[in-house]
Design a protein around this nucleic acid. Structure first.
Lengths: 142, 142
DNA sequence: CCTCCTAAGTTGGCTTTCCCAACTCACGTT
DNA sequence: AACGTGAGTTGGGAAAGCCAACTTAGGAGG
């Protein structure tokens, strides 16, 4: 039997390798340079080189040269990269709840003033989208 | 410099290895047996054995014996496992939008009747939680 | 009873990643 | 001239992953 065709699997092909998401986390934090990313993630430099190349090739990051002499660059998020924020947010929420011990290393405040408690909802009705509230739509292929 | 302490990193320690999330996807789909998971993910059996053990040890899955003679088991989600649905949903959404080519392999319908378009919102105000709408709260450690 | 079948792994051998530390290279800076 | 910095490269060993075959424990069919 061939493995299931699935967008989760497709997404993981692009950003599922070790360090990829942590590198993106750093870029979201504004740490856009190679050495910063290396230091803050803990990834080894050679692997990080490969990961960043792949993320650029996949259109998740863009390499910007911000100085000609000497040549210096920064990595910036594309639209696709920015869209990964939700993934990171869900990982953070899950890690906060089920893995991290003691005080949380980071707490977000939403622009409304409240401490962020993220919820995934259906855009149409605004109700929470839980596993139980979802069924396969007739639009589904295969 | 030591790597950043972060719940995303902590979460990835638990479910960030290759095949872990795909194995969980299968359990969400109701494919709770070893051979089903192996077939539908494409993971090799030895690696899958290790992953499932780790997920059980981490409290994400539970191994249930559903037959004594012969001994047969199924993997079931714990609360922590169920909470990972949001992560999978965000990966699916991102993969659908930025990776998967052609017709989507799976479309969800929400219980409200609409095709699911998931949105991450702040539980307090209901507004979308984007990267720009978030700031570090004073509650944050370090 | 003997053979086939299924579930759930194990095992052996090989290939690919990963990690670490050191090295490079092209500039600046003092 | 010597030193520092950003951004990788390189070499070598350790760890993880892949595949196919094997095992174990119990049905089911003839």
């Amino acid at each position: 039997m061939a493995p299931r065709i699935c967008s989760v699997a497709n997404a993981l092909e692009v950003v599922g390798e070790r360090w990829s998401l942590l590198a993106l986390r750093e870029v979201f934090f504004g740490n856009t340079r190679f050495d910063q990313i290396a230091a803050n993630t803990g990834a080894s430099r050679d692997v990080l080189t490969v990961r960043l190349k792949k993320l650029v090739a996949a259109g998740v990051l863009e390499k910007h040269q911000y100085s000609d002499h000497p040549p210096r660059h920064e990595y910036h998020l594309t639209d696709a990269g920015r869209a990964l924020h939700n993934v990171l947010l869900m990982f953070k929420e899950w890690g906060d709840t089920y893995v991290t011990q003691g005080p949380l290393p980071l707490v977000y405040q939403h622009s409304c003033g409240a401490v962020l408690e993220p919820r995934v909802v259906c855009a149409a009705c605004g109700e929470e989208a839980t596993a139980e509230s979802l069924t396969r739509a007739p639009e589904s292929a295969a």
